[in-house]
Simulated assay, not measured.
Amino acid sequence: METLVELWNYYAQNYAYVWEEFYRHFLMSAYGVLFAAIVAIPVGIFIARNAHLSKWVFSFTNVIQTIPALAMLAVLMLVLGLGPNTVVAALFLYSLLPIVRNTYTGIRNVDQAFIESGRGMGMTKFQLLRMVEFPLALSVIMAGLRTALVISISIATIGAFIGGGGLGTIIIRGTNVSDGTGIILAGAIPTALMAVVADLGLGWIEND
């Protein structure tokens, strides 16, 4: 009960600050996924056309995925310094694998009958991609974006350690005070809600 009271009091006294960090946290996550999508979707389409290159691309993205988030942030910090830009760069790297993999899978799994029909109508390769392959693969690509965004929201929490801000700042503040469970929850609950809402929102778009 005391924890709930502490949580309520923290929100009542710091609602503007919590909202500011919530907004910053979401922007870092969204920008990381957006920049990754700009790179990863074309790469996924390219390796779907050139399957012999897929193992090299997936090997690279898999290696990135195995690097602990704190280690990744520490390395990037040496190049980019402290702040949200470094966090966005890390989220960009972590978002590559799910988007590339789902784009590759979606394009490769398009029914060849639709492609042959398009060719029979005289479509060019670009027209086939734009009007046939990409629309049919879009739900699978959206699933990759959905996964990437949820991963980014969770990893962005650690960005507070390098001055990136976000809800992780509140969680760290709670760990640095005695009996700061309420403060920890004040940062953890919005983070979890953000991830759930992002997942449900993109899931709705994916199934629409």
Rank of each mutant, 00 (worst) to 15 (best):
M1Q: 12
E2M: 11
L4R: 02
V5A: 13
L7N: 03
L7Y: 06
W8G: 11
N14P: 02
E20H: 12
R24H: 02
F26M: 12
F26G: 12
L27W: 05
M28S: 00
M28R: 01
S29V: 14
A30S: 04
Y31W: 12
G32E: 02
L34D: 07
L34W: 04
A37Y: 03
A37W: 03
I38S: 07
V39S: 05
V39K: 00
V39T: 08
A40K: 01
I41E: 00
V43W: 06
G44K: 01
I45Q: 07
F46H: 06
I47N: 10
A48C: 10
A48N: 09
R49V: 09
N50Q: 13
A51L: 15
H52R: 14
L53D: 06
K55M: 14
F60Q: 07
V63W: 08
Q65D: 12
Q65E: 14
Q65N: 13
Q65Y: 15
T66M: 11
T66Q: 06
A69R: 03
L70W: 05
M72I: 15
M72V: 15
V75Q: 01
M77G: 07
L78E: 10
L80F: 14
L80P: 02
V87A: 01
A90I: 12
L91F: 04
L93S: 10
L93K: 01
Y94L: 12
S95K: 01
S95D: 02
L96V: 01
I99Q: 06
I99Y: 05
V100N: 07
V100E: 09
N102F: 11
Y104E: 10
Y104L: 09
T105V: 13
T105M: 09
G106P: 00
I107K: 03
R108T: 15
R108K: 14
R108M: 15
N109E: 11
V110A: 08
V110C: 08
V110E: 06
I115T: 11
S117E: 13
G118Y: 06
G118L: 05
G120E: 02
G122F: 07
L129H: 04
L129S: 07
M131T: 14
M131Q: 15
V132D: 08
E133W: 00
L136F: 05
L138T: 13
I141G: 04
A143E: 10
L145K: 00
L145G: 10
R146V: 06
A148N: 07
A148G: 09
S154F: 10
I155S: 03
F161V: 15
G163V: 02
G166H: 00
L167C: 06
T169H: 10
T169D: 08
I170D: 01
R173C: 04
G174E: 07
S178V: 11
G182W: 03
A186N: 00
I189T: 10
T191N: 10
L193I: 10
V196N: 04
V197T: 08
V197Y: 11
V197A: 08
A198D: 11
G203R: 07
G203I: 03
W204K: 15
N207G: 11
D208N: 15
